[in-house]
């Protein structure tokens, strides 16, 4: 067997009806690598990372995550998902649970970690994302930035091997973006394998090893952040960058 990455797309295709939303995607993400995925709206970047944990199914091609083939009947998706954290644009915290309960729910019920131990770890994680004083707050009592940090802590509570971020700062007020990005930088620096859909170029430059640019369902360009931002190779990426870097 050839050496595979942590996340390995090999000729992956997906359709929504007649629309080819992922076109022959081949992409390998190595362990501890941080890959930023960017591209215009509707280019398929969210769909791409949602395939990794099976929130979307693929039509053909192979997608191998942590050595297991996604969508294969022999693969236990439920257990594979425990190794993959997913951070949503709209946070999706559980509104009927406190911040701490949000963080400990899956560790207790899915990972079967004893409650006391899970709560201790949960408190440490909330402290790590700067929310030690919000342990007992409900999501509705938190700002967007705070909610997203709880959501990141919730993923970390499962001790995942991979973290996926789907536009984690797009729903936030500008002054809250940096507090979330700081947490993501810290996670990246601890060696997490990450795929991040974002237009935050500062984040990409700081921690990403690679930037992947998508348009109309295909990967158009891929390179180091420096190469991509300073010397984009295609017209489409140049046009895209001129739009997002204008302001």
């Amino acid at each position: 067997m050839t050496k595979t990455g942590m996340i390995d797309f090999r000729g992956v295709n997906k359709w929504f009806g007649a629309l080819n939303v992922l076109k022959d995607i081949t992409l390998s993400v190595e362990p501890r690598e941080v890959v930023v995925v960017c591209g215009p709206s509707g280019s398929g970047k969210s769909t791409l990372i949602r395939c990794v944990n099976g929130l979307e199914t693929i039509k053909d091609g192979n997608l191998i995550v942590d050595g297991q083939r996604v969508g294969d009947p022999a693969t236990n998706m439920t257990s594979l998902r425990t190794e993959i954290g997913f951070v949503f644009q709209s946070f999706n915290l559980y509104p009927h649970k406190t911040a701490l309960e949000n963080v400990t729910l899956a560790p207790i019920h899915v990972r079967k970690i004893p409650r006391a131990e899970a709560e201790k770890a949960g408190r440490e994680l909330l402290a790590k994302v700067g929310l030690a004083d919000k342990v007992n707050a409900y999501p509705a009592q938190l700002s967007g930035g705070q909610q997203q940090r709880v959501a990141i802590a919730r993923c970390l509570g499962m001790r995942p091997k991979i973290m996926l971020f789907d536009e984690p700062t797009s729903a936030l007020d500008p002054e809250m973006i940096s507090e979330v990005l700081d947490v993501m930088v810290a996670v990246a620096e601890e060696g997490m394998t990450m795929m991040v859909v974002t237009h935050e170029m500062g984040f990409a430059r700081k921690v990403a090893q690679r930037v992947v640019f998508m348009d109309a369902g295909a990967i158009v360009e891929s390179g180091t952040p420096d190469e991509f931002f300073s010397h984009p190779r295609t017209d489409r990426s140049r046009a895209f960058l001129s739009k997002i870097l204008r302001h």
Binding site: F86, N92, H96, A106, V110, R154, M158
Partner: peptide, 29 residues
């Protein structure tokens, strides 16, 4: 909201777990 189900699926919960822990307590209210 759909996002509640997706969040619980993404964290590795089974159908029964996400109904019991996430969906039904909120639906109850």
């Amino acid at each position: 909201p759909r996002g509640q189900v997706e969040a619980s699926v993404a964290s590795g919960m089974t159908y029964v777990q996400r109904m019991r822990l996430v969906v039904l307590p909120q639906a109850f209210k």
